[in-house]
């Protein structure tokens, strides 16, 4: 790839100071570094992943509204936490975390306990109780 062929398709890196560094050939045929703001196929790959996550989250949101799942399930999903990751952050067993994804079990938890989940997901307890 030549220097002028390095893609500069504006994507998710737009507002950050992160850049993709490419190695590309200059006019004399030597490799050099070129900073790029993004490449469309890659941005599309990432956006597909996020679309998929938000679809799944929407389904969970419906389940929460119908009383099939607890709000914790939704808040974990949009932050990409599964029961295993949550267990590892909180020190609560995976089995217990899974139990708390059920609305009946979740409602029994007091604010002190919910605070633990809220801290890990960096949100307020009140937010955690609704979707």
């Amino acid at each position: 790839m030549k220097v002028e062929e390095v893609p500069q398709d504006v994507g998710y890196l737009k507002d950050s100071n992160l850049r993709d560094i490419y190695y590309a050939l200059d006019d004399s045929g030597s490799y050099c570094q070129v900073a790029s703001i993004g490449w469309q196929p890659r941005t599309e790959a990432l956006s597909l992943v996020w679309e998929h996550i938000s679809e799944e989250a929407d389904e969970i949101r419906q389940d929460v509204l119908q009383g099939k799942k607890s709000p914790l399930a939704y808040h974990m999903k949009i932050r990409l936490f599964d029961a295993g990751i949550m267990a590892s952050y909180s020190g609560i067993s995976k089995k217990t975390v899974k139990k708390h994804l059920q609305p009946t079990e979740f409602e029994r938890l007091d604010d002190m306990f919910l605070q633990k989940y809220a801290d890990i997901l960096s949100m307020e307890v009140e937010e955690l109780k609704k979707v």
């Binding site: 790839m1 390095v6 890196l13 992160l18 993709d20 560094i21 490419y22 190695y23 590309a24 490799y31 490449w39 196929p41 890659r42 599309e44 790959a45 990432l46 597909l48 992943v49």
Partner: peptide
């Protein structure tokens, strides 16, 4: 999409380090 993400994810220098290896 996952293959492409890993191939071009931030930090490979393009084409999964292949260009960097050429350098």
């Amino acid at each position: 999409a996952q293959v492409i993400r890993m191939l071009e994810e931030i930090g490979t220098g393009g084409a999964g380090f292949r260009y960097m290896y050429a350098a």
